[in-house]
Design a protein around this nucleic acid. Structure first.
Length: 110
DNA sequence: GTTCTCACA
DNA sequence: TGTGAGAA
């Protein structure tokens, strides 16, 4: 990983933005049971997207990431609400930072 | 395989 | 904070 950071990153974003998987696969990969994922969704901690035809839950990479992060915080002794708040704050901060970077690139200084 | 609800710890 | 069971 040296000469083509840009191209490598492009493929990563392209893959991640298209990554939408069903609840069963999320459960298998993350180790969080489907039952628990639905429970979190009922509490408003994660959100699933649904296809027009099917009624099954599907999760994009941001929500999968959320599931993993919340799970880690729970293992560290956080309550569910505290873990959810912390994850939400961290993801918002990251989003804000990249937003600033994007803004800076769109308005070059003279 | 998925969904929901009710009950239980 | 989660799980089990039953039914669709």
């Amino acid at each position: 990983m040296s000469a083509n950071h840009d191209q490598q990153m492009y493929y990563d974003f392209d893959l991640l933005s298209k990554l939408v998987v069903g609840i069963g696969e999320v459960a298998d990969i993350t180790g969080v049971p489907t039952r628990k994922i639905r429970y979190w969704e009922d509490k408003g901690i994660v959100r699933s997207v649904q296809e027009a035809d099917g009624s099954t839950r599907r999760y994009d990479y941001l929500n999968i990431k959320k599931i993993v992060l919340v799970q880690e915080l729970l293992e560290d002794g956080y309550t569910l609400d505290a873990a959810a708040r912390k994850v939400e704050d961290r993801m918002k901060n990251i989003n804000d930072i990249f937003q600033k970077i994007a803004d800076k690139q769109n308005t070059p200084q003279p």
